[in-house]
Amino acid sequence: MEYLIHIAVLVCLYGILGLSLNLVVGETGLISVAHAGFYGIGAYVTALLLVGLGMNFFLAMALGIIASGLVALLISGVISRLRGVYFLFGTIGLNIIAWSIFLNWQSVTRGPLGIPSIPRPGIWGLDLYQNLQFLFLAAASLAIVYFISVFIKKSSFGRVLNSIREDEEATQIFGYATSYYKLAIFTIGAMLAALAGALFATYITYIDPSSFTINESIFIFSTIVLGGLGSSRGAVLGPLLLVFLFEGFRFAGFPSEIAAQMRMLAYGFALVLLMLYRPKGIWGTFRI
């Protein structure tokens, strides 16, 4: 039971990451693989404030979200001018920079040693030491992010994002300053990713740079491609399926020395088959 709760928490965290990245990739067409960087900023800022200053969890989380948003705002001022593959390469650079800072700014982040003993959050004097209690927090956060995602999607803003996704130049002709829209959604996406980071740090109670590599960004990207780009439901379904696929391999009976490789092999095959036979993903509304 404890293991299932653990998986459910992971699904919630990746669901938040999927929903937030879907706003950037699925709704706006900005192919970003920087998400683990913003996820990491949320995790590190929250962890440092909790461990170093003993700050209230929600305040620390809010500051983590704001920090991630500010970084995204500053950076997207530059990279929102880029299009297509140039934007993609810009975000690869971003994730590498963020990861390098987590790894090398040792006086703050402790580098590869990571930050241990991060306290679990407390709500109204109740500490969420039990995973089941934490699951409620994670699920509530997922529900809030899902609501935000649907709210954006159904707004006029969401329609403009879709228009930018398909033809940015034509969207400009309609009178839209598209760089502001891209800047806004990139920042919103980064802030929501930081929320997942804050939850991750306090759930695992230990973070190090290995959780925020470019591979993690690619995994998050894969979840939304599987679930279907441009779909909020898909952005939750994709993480659910991939987390279960990964965890399911623990019980496939492979020898422990090859189990991890087999898991990656299955993940790779799943992506290739998906692109061949269902490029829109399961519930996707948008084909790259």
């Binding site: 006029s156 803003f157 403009v160 300053a177 502001y180």
Partner: peptide
């Protein structure tokens, strides 16, 4: 941008 975000 802000107007569009809160407009249906």
């Amino acid at each position: 941008v802000w107007g569009a975000l809160f407009e249906r």
